[in-house]
């Protein structure tokens, strides 16, 4: 007994605080240093320097931003950028939903085959895909030839070098992203949910509009947001499939640097694109990040 009580005393007997042990273990930050230094020097610094150029060239001030927003040519570019990004997002959602739905319910063989095709197209080199659309969309290309041959149209549709062509080519690129971002939410849908809806008396259309769509809305929104952001900054496909009058923001930036050597304005346009992108990603993280568990 005395023994036990003495032991209890051990805990009470720390009147004099013992000296703190010296720090000996390292905190494990060191391995991050090479990567961190690399990104700071070769990524952050150049981007910040570019943005700085927008304020200093040709002289200090906001003249580049004023020019960007006031000139109608540039305003037009901004309009085109948003129009294309919006159309691409909408059409991708419209096509991606049934495609992802098919993948979720179709017999295994078919769903695996179609999914393989989706992934193959997504992984194929961007230029190869764009090249194919350049061939397909020509005035004398396969699509127009086919439509004239069937007699649906007399004269070729203006597909190549127009906004229509840009949208088609970009939907081709973005569609797989929509399918991928709907896969998770669709897999989480339980068949019994719809059995319940049907027992409640809901028709197929009612079940679709009142149960199916609301449950998939977060996935659609998340996928749409990603596609919209990516489309805003797209360069290659619009520049190859579009015409001069359908220029988008990224093309404008490239042109300002490559042919006009106007680094100040290019910096300002980059800043604009960056702010748009980052704020949309902030929305994405705030509302759609799975870590937050907002979608439940």
């Amino acid at each position: 007994m005395a023994d036990a009580i003495a032991v209890k005393g051990v805990r009470a007997a720390q009147a004099a605080p013992p000296p703190p042990a010296p720090r000996r273990l390292r905190n494990g930050f060191a391995p991050a240093v090479p990567g961190l230094a690399f990104l700071l020097l070769c990524f952050m610094l150049p981007v910040l320097a570019l943005l700085l150029r927008s304020l200093t060239q040709p002289q200090w001030g906001l003249q580049n931003y004023a020019a960007l927003l006031a000139t109608s040519t540039y305003a037009n570019v901004l309009f085109n950028t948003f129009a294309v990004a919006g159309l691409v997002t909408g059409i991708s959602a419209l096509l991606g939903l049934p495609l992802a739905w098919f993948l979720a319910v179709a017999p295994r063989f078919w769903s695996q085959l179609v999914f393989g095709i989706v992934i193959l197209s997504m992984w194929t080199n961007l230029l190869a895909r764009t090249y194919a659309w350049m061939v397909l969309l020509q005035d004398t290309g396969i699509i127009n030839n086919f439509l004239i041959w069937t007699g649906i149209i007399q004269n070729p549709l203006p597909l190549f070098g127009t906004m229509a062509g840009v949208v088609i080519g970009m939907v081709y690129i973005m569609l797989p992203f929509m399918v991928l971002s709907l896969r998770g939410p669709l897999a989480a849908l339980d068949a019994s949910l719809f059995q319940a809806a049907s027992l409640c008396g809901a028709s197929r259309v009612q079940a679709f509009t009142q149960v199916f769509l609301p449950l998939l809305a977060p996935g659609l929104a998340a996928g749409g947001l990603i596609i919209f952001v990516m489309s805003l900054g797209y360069y290659i496909t619009p520049s190859l499939l579009g015409g001069a009058q359908d220029m988008m923001l990224a093309e404008l930036i490239a042109q300002l640097v490559q042919t006009l050597l106007n680094w100040g304005l290019a910096g300002a346009a980059s800043f604009l694109l960056l702010v748009l992108t980052l704020s949309l990603y902030a929305v994405q993280i705030r509302y759609f990040s799975p870590r937050r568990g907002k979608e439940g």
């Binding site: 495609l99 098919f102 319910v105 895909r129 081709y172 569609l175 849908l189």
Partner: peptide
């Protein structure tokens, strides 16, 4: 109903048609 391929009813044909068109769109190029 909606997540059961066999019991999609008329929606099944619509679904297969759109999915087929999309697949063609992705594969053709």
């Amino acid at each position: 109903m909606l997540m059961d391929f066999a019991r999609l009813g008329w929606m099944r044909w619509l679904l297969c048609a759109t999915a087929g068109a999309c697949t063609l769109f992705l594969l053709a190029p």
